[in-house]
Nucleic acid binder design. Structure first.
Ligand SMILES: [Zn+2]
Ligand SMILES: [Zn+2]
Ligand SMILES: [Zn+2]
Ligand SMILES: [Zn+2]
Ligand SMILES: [Zn+2]
Ligand SMILES: [Zn+2]
Length: 762
DNA sequence: GAGTTTGAAACT
DNA sequence: CAGTTTCAAACTC
């Protein structure tokens, strides 16, 4: 029951890694789906119903159609083995992480994740992992489970939202961050989210059916199956409602935001976060069209669709044309990114163990060490919002995992670049990330297409052995993958000891060395209410750039590359940063907040629209909310597992930071990470870290208030860090100081580990 | 794909 | 901390 999100994350991770492998299986399942749309749907529904919590999806099997059924059954069976699997999974995960390529079920995974998220069902992360571990099948099962759970709960009583709410609340918070980043609408409060989630769940069955219908209707979809995924894809491909693609995206975002907002409004509790992301994507994909009306329902439906789609999609993909599949994959990736963001929620429960096996991230190794940390969600009485605090490693781990998944996805899929970053950006969701960065990557991907997407990055090191920050992989906290063109690479799981030791050394010199390069701070007033206004969040490069010849107009500039404007921390000459000139910030001075907003806006715009260069600036990165930590090892404590951030970018990061909603997610990484966290909550100041494109997943901690953290979750270890911080002198300056504090996480990890519990690393 | 430019990372 | 070197990405062609 614990935390669905986590599971989702794990699933994602797993999925991503295994995507390839799954694809085969999926193809089968897909086929079955294609044969009968209804059948698919039914399957899903059945699954949902059957599964209560965890693994056992058994019932499904019986229900399942022959084609799909086989696959599902297999999955299920594997799930049953869960315990054993879990162990295996961990291993596999790592392995995978090491070589994301292995499995490529990405689509599925993604879908799985989304579903899970939607379900919001609290599963023990561990179980999930175990499920996942089983293999592709496991993934499916996991999804199924999630659904099943959701359904069950829902079925029991939509009326009983309470449980969900509670569960969700945590998740929702996490989600919220993401959502917030993504869409202003998200502002809605976390609590609301929860309720919504409950509704979602309840509605899920319906949704499924509907979703199919919608698919058929709405999308002419090429794919007969009409799985929700297909729909989504279709919508994505063809901007749903009418909007031109570009505008369409924006519109989508807007719509999504609107929808979300409306939903939020509707529900006091508003679920936004996790669902929000999903919703967003779904919204985007499906069609923003419907916006208003039962937004909730739709949102739910969409989500459901997503989830379902995920499954269906997979199927479709296989059957469908390659292009479709690719698309679907992207979508999945996006979803995952979202999930990532969601994930952060809480690892909370003791199950943290799950995290252990993470994937490719360097952190993974660390993860084993500390499980202590947990994410704590605090509710601020004041605002009512809840701040999630991840103290723990677990959260970090999850993030990491997420990030890894993102990475993996990137590798395998090479999703489009930016997106979320997803936001990673994932972040706070961090996750955001990755980069999360990396979100809606699929859609964005379309745009980006090109090469690197967020996720796709690969290094080409010749002399650094991939053990220095010169190496983007190493810097991102991830292991090199097959797609890397590095020479004499030591940044591989087999050299884990060396990697970790090197990391440690580097961190000792510079605590924030592995922190996301872009930090988002919502300072100022914004918090209070609304920071939201948007404003806020001004994302900035953690160290500022030192450009002399590029005028901060090219990606040589890390600020520009990160999709953020230059700040007083920058020492650039002739700054013309399209996301915001240094001068502007300086001048503004007091007004910083405003500027920040502006900048942020600009960024978003850029990202979404086109950033200057379509390329994607790395927005992928997910911005982490204050607390969110990057994957850095520090997190590791908790997360050792995860690897890299991913942040984001995972999210599939969209180009712009903003993204999440708007999308900045980097799909890749994370995420796109994706995502930017807009809202900071009410806390004093929230800083979000935006991982760059890829930052692996992000851990989202609520830093801001360290105090809060403590208060909130006594359980959790104290994150307190000295903040003194890491030393970012510049950032410290005036306003930014806060940021640094918020940032603490990175180092914090270490601290935690070190101070209290020695890092497990060694 | 080779070659150049660039600015961060690393080194002194 | 500044200056220099090293490095790999970003960019150009
Ligand atoms: Zn490298
Ligand atoms: Zn590499
Ligand atoms: Zn390498
Ligand atoms: Zn610059
Ligand atoms: Zn700058
Ligand atoms: Zn500049």
């Amino acid at each position: 029951m614990t935390i669905p999100f986590l599971r989702c994350l794990h699933l994602h991770m797993l999925v991503c890694r295994r995507n390839q492998g799954f694809s085969q299986e999926l193809s089968k399942s897909d086929i079955s789906l294609e044969n009968g749309d209804e059948g698919n749907v039914s399957l899903v529904a059945s699954l949902v119903a059957s599964d209560v919590f965890e693994l056992p999806v058994f019932t499904f099997e019986g229900k399942e159609n022959s084609g799909v059924g086989d696959i599902l059954q297999e999955n299920i069976s594997t799930n049953e083995h869960s315990s054993a699997f879990s162990a295996k999974l961990t291993e596999t995960l790592r392995y995978e992480s090491g070589s994301p390529d292995h499995n490529t079920l990405p689509l599925y995974d993604v879908k799985m994740e989304s579903r899970i998220d939607l379900g919001g069902i609290p599963l023990s992360s561990s179980r999930f992992i175990g499920d996942v571990s089983n293999g592709s099948h496991g993934l499916l099962s996991s999804e199924i489970q999630s659904h099943g759970i959701s359904d069950l709960e829902l079925s029991k009583g939509q009326g009983n939202h309470c449980d969900w709410d509670n569960r969700i609340s945590d998740a929702s918070e996490l989600l919220i961050f993401d959502s917030s980043t993504g869409s202003e609408a998200c502002r809605v409060q976390d609590q609301n989210l929860v309720t919504q989630n409950a509704e979602y769940f309840a509605s899920l069955p319906l949704i499924l059916s509907e979703s199919q219908e919608n698919i058929d209707e709405s999308s002419q979809k090429t794919q007969p199956c009409g799985s929700t995924l297909a729909l989504v894809e279709n919508t994505i491909n063809n901007p749903p409602t009418n909007h031109d693609k570009e505008t369409g995206e924006l519109d989508r975002m807007d719509q999504l935001t609107h929808v979300l907002s409306s939903v939020c409004q509707d529900n006091d509790e508003g679920i936004v976060d996790a669902t929000g992301q999903l919703v967003d994507e779904a919204m985007n994909s499906t069609t923003v069209d419907d916006k208003v009306e039962s937004q909730h329902q739709r949102g739910v439906r969409r989500r459901c669709l997503f989830v379902e789609m995920g499954a269906a999609h997979k199927n479709n993909l296989h059957n469908g044309s390659d292009s479709d599949s690719s698309r679907s994959v992207k979508d999945d990736a996006n979803v995952t990114s979202d999930d990532r963001q969601l994930v952060p929620f809480k690892a909370g429960n003791g199950s943290s163990t799950c995290m252990l096996p993470s994937i490719g991230l360097h952190l993974n190794a660390l993860a084993t060490t500390s499980k202590d940390s947990r994410m704590v969600l605090q509710e601020n009485p004041d605002s009512g919002r809840q701040s999630i605090k991840m103290s723990s490693s677990i959260g970090s781990l999850r993030f990491l995992k997420v990030a890894q998944t993102l990475h993996i996805q990137r590798d395998s899929r090479s999703i489009g670049g930016d997106e979320v970053m997803q936001d990673a950006s994932c972040t706070p969701a961090i996750g955001t990330g990755e980069e999360l960065n990396r979100s809606t990557p699929k859609r964005k991907r379309r745009k980006l297409d090109a090469g690197e997407n967020e996720g796709c990055k690969h290094c080409n090191c010749k002399k650094s052995k991939c053990l220095k920050l010169y190496c983007e992989c190493f810097a991102a906290g991830i292991y090199c993958v097959d797609s890397c063109s590095c020479q004499n690479c030591f940044n591989k799981p087999m050299h884990e000891d060396t990697v970790l030791a090197t990391r440690k050394q580097i961190e000792s010199r510079n605590p924030i060395a592995f922190a996301p390069k872009v930090i988002k701070s919502s300072d100022t007033y914004s918090d209070s209410g609304d920071d939201a206004n948007k404003t806020p969040a001004s994302a900035r490069h953690k160290k500022g750039c030192n450009c002399k010849k590029s005028s901060c107009l090219k990606k040589y500039c890390e600020c520009y590359q990160g999709g953020v404007g230059c700040s007083i921390s920058c020492r650039c000459d002739g700054c013309k940063n399209a996301f915001g000139r240094k001068e502007d910030t300086v001048l503004v001075g007091a007004n910083e907040a405003e500027h920040g907003e502006e900048e942020s806006d600009t960024c978003e715009k850029n990202g979404k629209v086109g950033s200057p260069e379509n390329d994607g600036i790395q927005k992928d990165g997910q911005q982490y909310h204050e607390g969110v930590l990057p994957i850095t090892p520090s997190f590791q404590v908790c997360s050792s597992s995860g690897k890299l951030p991913f942040l984001s970018g995972g999210k599939p990061p969209r180009s712009s930071v903003v993204s999440i909603g708007s999308s900045k997610l980097n799909s890749c990484g994370m995420l796109r990470k994706s995502k930017i966290l807009l809202s900071a909550p009410k806390f004093e100041k929230h800083f979000q870290i935006v991982p760059e494109d890829e930052t692996p997943e992000i851990l989202k901690l609520n830093t801001s208030p360290i105090s809060t953290v403590k208060s909130s979750s006594p359980n959790s270890k104290r994150v307190s860090p000295p903040h003194t911080d890491f030393g970012l002198s510049p950032s410290r300056r005036s306003g930014r100081k806060l940021v640094l504090q918020s940032i603490r996480p990175f180092p914090s990890l270490n601290y935690d580990a070190i101070d209290q519990s020695p890092p497990r690393y060694q």
